[in-house]
Simulated assay, not measured.
Amino acid sequence: MTSTTFRIGGDPGVRRLGFGAMRLPTDPGPARDASRALARRAVELGVTLIDTAHMYGWGANEELLAEALHPYADGLIITTKVGVARSTSSAGWKLDARPDVLRGQVEHALRRLRVERIELLQLHRIDPEVPLADQLGALRELQSEGKVGRIGLSEVTVTELAQAREIVDVASVQNRYSLLDREHEPVLAACEAAGIAFLPWRPVASAASHTSAEIAAVAAEVDATSAQVSLAWLLHHSPVILPIPGTARIDHLEENLAATHLHLDPTRLDRLDRLAE
C-alpha cells in the first residue's frame, strides 16, 4: 500500500501531496481574496506542505500565505526558496547566492512568514559564480542559529547533490519531474537511496500539455482525470516523491488532492511506466 506521509529529514512528517503556491495572485482585490481562500481550503483538506519562494512576487507570495494562514495549523510546513534576485535583464531575475544575499532573503522570509524558524529552506538554484561551500555554508550558519530547520536544493544533478551532501545534510530536492518528463530520474534514484524527499515541480503540466492517449485511456478506466492519474502515478512511483501541484482555482485544488485516493493497479502502472520509453 502506498504511504500517504513522509518524514522530511527524519522529521517532521507531512502528507505526501502538497501544494505549490507560485500561481496564486497577490495583487490587492478580489483575486487576492480568492488566493487567501484557496490557501485556507488547502489546509482544510489536509495539506501540510506548502511551497513558496522569495522569487514569487519578490516576497509577496510569502506575505500572502502568512496573511491567509497565520497562526499556522499544527504540523503545517511552509517551505521557501532563496538564491534568486531581481535583475535589469530581460528575464527580470538572476541567480545570486552570495552569503549576504542568502542571509538577507532568509531574514525577510522570516519576517514575511511571521515565523522564527523556516522548517525547510531550499536553495532555488546553485549559483555558478559563487563557491558551493560558500552558498551552503551560509545556510548551515543560519541553521546553527536556529533560523533554518532543514536545508534543501532545487534543480540539481546527481553530482551536485553528492557535492552538496559533503557540506550539509540535504533534506529535500526540488526538480522538474512528471509522468512525461523524467529527465531527472537519476536524481530521484539518488534521493530514494538516501531517503531524501523529492519534490517534483510542474508535476502535471507535461501530461496536460501533451496529447497522451494512454494517460487518457487509463483515466477513463478509473473514472479520473489525466491530472489525477499523473499525480497518482507519482505517488506510486517512489516513496520519497512529494508532488506540489499548483493552481489558483479551488476546484482544481480539490481535484488534485483527490488523487491521493486513486488506486492504480500494477497493469495500469506498467502501462504508464512504459510511456517513458
Rank of each mutant, 00 (worst) to 15 (best):
F198T: 04
L110M: 08
L123G: 06
R165G: 10
Y56D: 10
L113T: 06
A31S: 15
M22D: 06
H184F: 14
A97K: 01
V240P: 07
A220I: 02
T2E: 13
D33P: 02
R249F: 13
L257S: 07
W58Y: 14
G9C: 01
G46D: 12
A276M: 05
A73K: 13
M55T: 12
A66F: 05
A53R: 02
I118C: 07
L257E: 06
A217Y: 01
H124A: 06
R140T: 10
E183W: 10
A197W: 03
R274S: 05
Y177I: 11
I77Q: 05
F19W: 01
A171G: 03
E277A: 12
A220D: 15
S35N: 05
R36S: 14
P28H: 12
M22K: 00
G59W: 07
R32V: 11
R114Q: 11
L242P: 05
L179W: 05
A21K: 08
R271S: 10
H108F: 09
W93M: 13
A193I: 00
A207N: 06
H184K: 12
K147V: 10
T48G: 01
G104H: 11
G195Y: 03
H54M: 10
L275Y: 03
L132T: 10
A34G: 01
T26W: 14
E277M: 08
S35W: 12
R36I: 15
I118G: 07
L142P: 06
S226F: 00
R249S: 14
L264I: 10
P99R: 09
I126L: 07
K147D: 09
L269F: 11
A217E: 14
T260H: 01
